[in-house]
C-alpha cells in the first residue's frame, strides 16, 4: 500500500517536472521559430550593426543597437544605484543592526521586492522625473535617468537581501577570530566577512542585473518608447522589453515582419539573461567551498 502510494506520488511529481520542462521547450521553440522567420527577411549583419530601429515605419530599419543601448544604459544606471547601496545595506544588516531590527527589515525588503513594477514606473514618472527636471530643465518627460534610478530601487532589495544572506553565512568562528585580533566591526565586515562572502555577493549582483535587463513595466513607463542610440541619460530611450510591450499592445498583424521582430528581440533578451543566470550559478559553484 505504502509502496503504491510512493509510486503514484513519484509519477505525479515527475509529471509536474515534465510539464515545466515542456513549457520551457515550447517557449524556446516558439522564440526560435519566429526568430528564424525574422532572419529570413532581415540579415543578421543589419540586425546587429544598423544604428536605427524602425521596424514599424517606412523606411524600415532593423538595427537592434538602439534597443540594446537603451537596456544597457538603464541597467548600468540601475547597477550604479543598487550595487553600492545594496552592499552597504547588507553590511549594516549583517554586522551592525540588532537582531530585532533585522527581523523587521528583512521581511520589509522582501515586500518591497514584491510591489508590482507598474507602481515603480508611475513613481518614476510622477516623482523622480519632476525632481530631475528641476535639477536639469532640459530633461525629457521620458528619460533613461529616471528609469535607471527606479530600476535601481526596484532591484535594491534583492541585492541587499541576497548579499546579506551571503555575508551572514560566513561562520561566526571566522568573525570571532578577527575580533580576537583587535579588529573593529567595520574591519571585520569589510576585510573578512565581505571577502569571504564575495561569491554569493557577486552572484546576487548578476541575478539583480539580469532582473534589471528583463524589467519591463517600470522602464516602459519611465523611459518611453523612442529607440535612440544616445548616451545622454536625460533623453528618452527604448529598451528591448519596452519594444516588445509596444508591439504586443499595438495592432501589428501576426506573420508580419514587425510581429516577428519582437521574437528576435526576445531571443536576444533571453540569451543575455540566460547567460547571466548561468554565470551566477557558476560563480556560486566555483566558490562554494570558500570556507568550511
Amino acid at each position: 500500500m505504502g509502496r503504491l502510494k510512493d509510486a503514484v506520488i513519484e509519477k505525479i511529481l515527475l509529471a509536474c517536472a515534465l510539464i515545466s520542462i515542456l513549457t520551457m521547450i515550447g517557449i524556446v521553440a516558439t522564440l526560435l521559430f519566429e526568430t528564424i522567420n525574422f532572419f529570413s527577411e532581415v540579415s543578421i549583419a543589419s540586425f546587429l550593426f544598423d544604428t536605427k530601429w524602425t521596424p514599424l515605419f517606412k523606411p524600415a530599419h532593423y538595427g537592434i543597437l538602439p534597443l540594446i543601448n537603451g537596456t544597457l544604459i538603464i541597467t548600468i544606471g540601475a547597477a550604479a544605484v543598487a550595487l553600492p547601496l545594496g552592499i552597504l545595506t547588507a553590511i549594516f544588516l549583517s554586522e551592525y543592526a540588532s537582531p530585532k531590527f533585522r527581523q523587521v527589515a528583512k521581511p520589509v525588503l522582501e515586500i518591497l521586492a514584491g510591489v508590482p513594477t507598474v507602481v515603480y514606473g508611475y513613481f518614476a514618472l510622477t516623482f523622480i522625473t519632476p525632481l530631475l527636471r528641476k535639477a536639469y530643465p532640459e530633461t525629457n518627460i521620458f528619460n533613461a535617468a529616471s528609469a535607471s534610478i527606479v530600476v535601481g530601487i526596484l532591484i535594491l532589495p534583492m541585492v541587499a537581501s541576497l548579499s546579506e544572506d551571503a555575508i551572514r553565512a560566513v561562520p561566526r568562528s571566522i568573525r570571532e577570530g578577527a575580533y580576537a585580533l583587535g579588529a573593529t566591526p567595520f574591519e571585520v565586515s569589510t576585510k573578512v566577512a565581505v571577502p569571504a562572502a564575495l561569491s554569493g555577493i557577486l552572484a546576487s549582483f548578476i541575478l539583480a542585473l539580469s532582473r534589471a535587463i528583463g524589467e519591463t513595466m517600470a522602464v516602459t513607463i519611465a523611459a518611453g518608447m523612442m529607440p535612440r542610440l544616445t548616451l545622454n541619460p536625460l533623453e528618452g530611450v527604448q529598451t528591448m522589453t519596452a519594444y516588445i510591450v509596444q508591439v504586443s499592445l499595438g495592432d501589428t498583424p501576426r506573420g508580419t515582419i514587425g510581429y516577428q521582430s519582437i521574437f528576435a528581440v526576445a531571443m536576444v533578451l533571453f540569451i543575455m539573461t540566460l547567460g547571466m543566470n548561468i554565470a551566477s550559478q557558476l560563480i556560486r559553484q566555483k566558490y562554494r567551498e570558500a570556507y568550511v
Binding site: 561562520p171 568562528s173 571566522i174 570571532e176 580576537a180 585580533l181 583587535g182 573578512v192 569571504a196
Partner: peptide, 17 residues
Amino acid sequence: LLRKQVGMVFQKPNPFP
C-alpha cells in the same frame, strides 16, 4: 585595544579563507 594586547586561540581552528 584590549584584544590587541590579549590574543586568543579557539577550540576549532578558524583560519580566514
